[in-house]
C-alpha cells in the first residue's frame, strides 16, 4: 500500500511542480521578473478580483465603498444590522444623549447567553452534584473560574445597566407618545432581567443562594389569595403544600425540585420570554420612529 501511495504522490507532485520551475535564464533579475509575472494573477486576485468571484458575490451583495448607496446597503442587506435604520439623527449617536445603555444591556445579555451556554456544559441541576460542579468549574475546568465570574458579574452589571437605561429613557421623556407601549415592554424586561438574575442565584446551591431564595420565595407564601399565609389564602384552602410558593419551588422547602425549576426558568423559559420581548422592544423602536432624539427643544408657548 505504502508503495502505491508513494507512487501516486510522486506522480501528482511532478505534475504540479513542472510549471513552477521554468528554465533558468542567465541573470537573477529575469528570474525574479518571471516569478513576478507568474504571481501577477494571484496579486490581482488578492488585490480585488476576488470580489468578482461567484462565491464572494453570493455572500456580499454590494461593494464596500463610501457611496451613500453602499453605506445604506451595508446596514439594510445584513440580517444582524438591519434592525438599524440606514440613517440616524446626527445627535442620536452622541454618547451623552443615550449613554449607550440600552445597547450595553443587550450586549451583556448576549455575553450572558454565551457564558451561560458554556457553563451549562459543566453543570448538573441536581442536589449535591450542582455544588460539586461549581467547585469543578472553579478549580479544574480550564478558564472555568473566569467563565463563572464573567457570568456572575455580567448578570449584576446587566441589572445596573437596565436601571440606568430606564432612568435615561425617563429623563429624556422618551416614553411619551408614540413610544408609550415600548416603555411598557421595557418595564416587563426590567422584571424579567431581575428574575433571570434571581433564578440564577440558587444554582450554585450554596448557603448564599439557598438563603437568598428562601427569603425571596418566603414572600410568595404571603401572596393575597394565592399564598397560605396571605390574606384570604387559608380561608380558600391554601396550605404550604398547594399554594403559589409550592408551585414555584416544586415543594414546601427549597430543595432538589426548586433547584431544577430554577434551572429551567433560568436557562430556558425566562431567556426565551426575554428574547421575545427584546425582539418586540427593538422592532418598536424602529416602528415608533427610531430613538426619541435628540429632538429640538419645544417651548411652552408653542404647545397647542
Amino acid at each position: 500500500m505504502s508503495h502505491d501511495d508513494h507512487g501516486h504522490g510522486h506522480g501528482h507532485g511532478a505534475g504540479t511542480e513542472a510549471p513552477e520551475a521554468p528554465p533558468v535564464n542567465d541573470t537573477e533579475g529575469s528570474l525574479l521578473n518571471a516569478l513576478r509575472a507568474k504571481a501577477e494573477p494571484l496579486k490581482k486576485f488578492m488585490g480585488g478580483e476576488y470580489k468578482e468571484t461567484q462565491v464572494w458575490k453570493s455572500i456580499f451583495r454590494h461593494k464596500l465603498d463610501k457611496s451613500h448607496r453602499n453605506r445604506s446597503l451595508a446596514v439594510l442587506s445584513n440580517v444582524f444590522l438591519h434592525l438599524h435604520p440606514a440613517r440616524i439623527n446626527r445627535n442620536a449617536v452622541r454618547y451623552n444623549f443615550t449613554w449607550g445603555m440600552g445597547g450595553i444591556t443587550f450586549y451583556l445579555f448576549v455575553l450572558l447567553t454565551l457564558t451561560g451556554t458554556l457553563l451549562m456544559f459543566y453543570f448538573h441541576p441536581s442536589k449535591g452534584q450542582a455544588y460539586k460542579d461549581i467547585m469543578y468549574l472553579q478549580n479544574d475546568v480550564p478558564f472555568g473560574n473566569l467563565l463563572r465570574n464573567m457570568h456572575r458579574w455580567s448578570a449584576h452589571a446587566m441589572v445596573i445597566t437596565t436601571w440606568i437605561h430606564m432612568m435615561r429613557v425617563f429623563l429624556t421623556g422618551s416614553y411619551k407618545p408614540p413610544r408609550e407601549f415600548n416603555w411598557n415592554i421595557g418595564v416587563l424586561l426590567l422584571l424579567f432581567t431581575m428574575l433571570l438574575s434571581f433564578t440564577g442565584y440558587l444554582l450554585p446551591d450554596d448557603q448564599l443562594g439557598f438563603w437568598a431564595v428562601t427569603v425571596g420565595t418566603n414572600m410568595a407564601r404571603a401572596t393575597p389569595i394565592l399564598g397560605h399565609e396571605g390574606p384570604l389564602g387559608p380561608e380558600l384552602g391554601f396550605t404550604a403544600f398547594n399554594d403559589v410558593r409550592f408551585a414555584l419551588l416544586g415543594g414546601s422547602v427549597v430543595d432538589a425540585n426548586a433547584l431544577l425549576r430554577a434551572y429551567i426558568w433560568h436557562c430556558i423559559a425566562i431567556p426565551i420570554i426575554a428574547a421575545v420581548l427584546m425582539i418586540v422592544h427593538f422592532w418598536r423602536i424602529r416602528k415608533d420612529g427610531a430613538i426619541s432624539g435628540h429632538a429640538p427643544v419645544m417651548l411652552e408657548s408653542e404647545v397647542k
Binding site: Q207, W211, G216
Partner: peptide, 24 residues
C-alpha cells in the same frame, strides 16, 4: 474578583442575616 461561593446549602444552618440578592 471571584464570584462568591459559600458552604453547600444547609437548611439547618440559618445565615444571619440572611439576605436576598442585593437588587431585592
Amino acid at each position: 474578583l471571584d464570584a462568591p461561593l459559600e458552604e453547600p446549602a444547609n437548611p439547618n444552618l440559618t445565615m444571619n442575616p440572611s439576605k436576598a440578592p442585593w437588587y431585592f
